[in-house]
């Protein structure tokens, strides 16, 4: 028995559930949802089995990115309350095993996408995995406060991959879905980082509240929210969304803006958190940040669900200009 193996004996043995946790199932479920929306919005008849394989490939590709992220970020994950229980920092899975899982699943998902659907969708999937694992995780995350802005592209691409899987192309409407998620990401993550700032500071991750301060972050959140809402309304005018979509995106957008303005006027992110163990305990001053964070998830889910629903029931788009 080698010394490394002997050292491993000090931890609980890795169970298959630990390897599932490496794939970030919750992130995967959001990716599946947005990719499915892209695939359905393409309005192209596709064999249901091939559609399911396309979604599976995107889900597994997203999971592979998660495993690669957990392999590389184990050192900073160990310092943060939110992530210290992950399999690698907790010692249940070795970093090399997480790396191997990520690489193998990346290859399987891209190859299967290429063989079953088309190689354009496969190339987009490969690019997304590369962008998340290398550009975001290895390069941007520890280097710049714009990490989640640029890195957000990886999370924004799944609807384009879904659309490409169905059609072999990516028209303007597919990129519009991508743009919505891209501009949604900064207000979403910065709202979260306003009340987990100490964690990021301790781990040395240059998140916006750590580098530029809470007030600047709250201003940036409002600016991105102002850019996001027109983008969310745009599908109603490009032939993608119908009247229900316009209503949901409009009403939800107003609520989003209201919460962003309330956050701007608050003192969220300015008081240090003395509590070290309470995950997601929110101080009274940071409640506005928590509210926007929670609503941002609901808003994205609502607008994508509405688009999905409209296309599944065949509701007519308002203006079929770009179809």
């Amino acid at each position: 028995m080698s010394m490394a193996q002997a050292a491993d004996r000090s931890h609980a043995p890795a169970r298959w559930q630990d390897f599932i946790q490496l794939l970030k199932p919750r992130v995967m479920s959001l990716v599946v949802f947005t990719a499915l929306t892209g695939l359905v919005c393409a309005d192209r008849p596709l064999n249901p089995v091939l559609a399911a394989v396309a979604i599976l490939c995107i889900a597994v590709g997203a999971g592979a990115s998660g495993a690669l992220n957990m392999w590389y970020d184990a050192d900073i994950d160990a310092k943060m309350r939110r992530t210290r229980g992950r399999p690698v920092p907790a010692g249940r899975v070795q970093g090399a095993d997480a790396l191997a899982l990520g690489v193998v699943l990346s290859m399987f998902s891209v190859m299967l996408m290429g063989m079953a659907l088309n190689w354009f969708a496969a190339a987009l999937l490969a690019f997304t995995i590369f962008f998340y694992a290398v550009v975001y995780t290895i390069w941007l995350k520890r280097w710049t406060a714009q990490n989640i802005v640029i890195g957000g592209l990886a999370g924004a691409l799944p609807p384009v991959i879904g659309w490409a899987a169905a059609t072999g192309s990516a028209p303007l409407n597919a990129w519009l879905l991508c743009a919505i998620i891209f501009f949604w990401t900064p207000p979403h993550f910065w709202a979260l980082s306003l009340y987990t700032r100490e964690d990021y500071a301790e781990a040395g991750v240059p998140m916006m509240p750590v580098v530029a301060g809470a007030a600047a972050t709250r201003r940036q959140i409002l600016i991105y929210s102002l850019l996001l809402i027109p983008l969310c309304l745009a599908p109603a005018f490009t032939g993608l969304g119908g009247p229900v979509y316009l209503g949901v995106a409009g009403a939800g957008g107003l609520m989003f803006l209201l919460l962003a303005v309330r956050l701007l006027r608050s003192h969220a992110g300015e008081t240090p958190d003395a509590r070290k163990d309470g995950l997601y305990d929110v101080r009274a001053g940071a409640r506005d940040a928590r509210n926007l964070f929670a609503f941002s998830i609901l808003y994205l889910a609502l607008i994508f669900a509405t688009l999905l629903g409209e296309h599944l029931v065949g509701a007519a788009p308002l203006t079929p200009l770009l179809r």
């Binding site: 890795a14 298959w16 299967l112 079953a116």
Partner: peptide, 21 residues
Amino acid sequence: SGRNLAIAIGLFAFVVIVFVV
């Protein structure tokens, strides 16, 4: 045993998917 079973199920599912596709 659990890890081995999970790998076996994963590989079998992959073979079935490739066959069906």
